[in-house]
Amino acid sequence: MSAPVHVALEMDQSWRYAAPAAMARFCAGLKERRIEALRCGGCGRRYLPPRPVCGNCHLPLADWVPVADEGRLEAWTVVHVPILDPRTGRMREAPYGMGLVRLDGADTTLNHFLAQSDPARLAIGQRVRAVWREQLAGAIDDIRHFEVLA
């Protein structure tokens, strides 16, 4: 029996993803601080993120509706585990607040960061508002995080 041998290596991974048309339009809107959802003509559900088809009705989605950058906190947590950012490979520092936010005008919730990371100051039902970055790149993290409104 030999001592166990290991092969240790670091693999570089890179990706290049084409956006679905609906997502491309959504991201273009973010560059102008505009949030839009797609409404299903069958069930009426307003989807964020936008997508080609309603998963419940199987109908194509084409009806764009405006969504506010404010909403209701539907779920929250404070994460204490650092995580490798899958886009950059850098560690994201902990702790940080995470929430599910139902933006006014949307029926699905959006998972995003919260400015607040003190559990004592977070509660389901709080009103929250997007804090936008100065430089907008047309990505969902053009919103830096959501802050709790007084």
Binding site: W76, T77, N111
Partner: peptide
């Protein structure tokens, strides 16, 4: 386009649902 920018892994996801 969406999840990777705001990912918090399995633990963060569970915690949101648990709350």
């Amino acid at each position: 386009y969406w999840d990777r920018a705001v990912a918090s892994g399995a633990v963060g996801n569970f915690a949101l649902s648990v709350s």
